[in-house]
Design a binder for these strands. Structure first.
Lengths: 163, 163
DNA sequence: TTCTAACTTCACAACTTTGTGAAACCAGTG
DNA sequence: CACTGGTTTCACAAAGTTGTGAAGTTAGAA
């Protein structure tokens, strides 16, 4: 009976289930709705990073309907994909190949919306006002981050290849 | 009557109010609760970046109780500060000097929590498992971003001084 | 000290989100 | 085509969030 000395290769199901719920809370705090967050966390702890809807429902202890809504959201924000093998009746939901890269890029696309809204806000407040200048600076900040992202990801990749 | 040709210094109150609500929705999508998001947006469009609780309540059309809860949250996550002048009965709530810098740093502190949780998750899944390795990589990713932040902020500052 | 402006806390109604079970739909198999 | 496994949609109850009004607390001024 493997109790808690999980220093090796063995998976500790209780600890894993706990991690899923706790990590899902973090994801939820970042704006991902509850069920999608739990679903994403469940995929992350799966060895192949892919599960069927029925497996997700079983592992998370929820109904198939809840999974249906969750995966719809995660596909919409491009954090997972749906696949089906020929001859198989079941959908498989998978993490992307480089999930964090995709998550960052997906969030970056979202920040384009922020930028245009900040531009509108600056105009509304008056471009020569202090508030207008503050909003313009915020816009420039996000544009700056946007420009820095490719380099950042390149450096990340280089580091991972090296280590 | 200034209608909509807001190309100059003049503030368009209707457009500003609209911006506040729309920008607050974006902030809310990022995980900031509704009322704190609206409150932060209201501070951002104020010329001095500071307002009293009563002013916030008036501008957002809500009760003082709602402002009380909102500013408590924003102070807790270190997005605003409370100040009071000697002899004044009123609290003033202010944006920080460099709000986006502070927001990023505040979020970075939060990501330390993510890192330790991912480490636990990797251990729970088994360090030699595919899932364990995926979670470890995620942890390394956040550590990498953490290490890159000072450089990023330096470059941002340099760009703003230059231009 | 009294007065009261300014803000906070509390109980709770209203609204939103969440996830269910049942029904409906889709698609693979024989 | 019929059958049914697998998933989605829908109506809705339950749980959670939000913001209010009233009461309570704090602190500045006289």
């Amino acid at each position: 009976m493997r109790v808690s000395q999980n220093g090796g290769a063995a998976r500790d199901p209780d600890a894993v289930a706990r991690f899923v719920e706790e990590f899902a809370l973090l994801l939820n705090e970042s704006g991902i709705p509850r069920m999608p967050a739990r679903t994403l966390a469940a995929l992350m702890v799966d060895d192949r990073g892919r599960l069927t809807a029925a497996q997700l429902a079983e592992q998370l202890g929820v109904s198939p309907a809840a999974i249906s809504g969750a995966v719809r959201y995660l596909m919409q924000v491009q954090l997972i994909v749906r696949k089906r093998e020929p001859g198989d009746k079941r959908d498989h939901y998978s993490l992307l190949d480089d999930p964090w890269y995709e998550a960052i890029m997906s969030r970056d696309k979202e920040l384009v919306r922020w930028q245009s809204m900040l531009e509108e806000g600056a105009r509304a407040a008056g471009v020569d006002t202090s508030a207008g200048r503050r909003l313009s600076q915020a816009r420039r900040f996000f544009a700056f981050v946007h420009a820095e992202l490719p380099g950042l990801m390149d450096r990340w990749r280089a580091q991972e290849q090296r280590g």
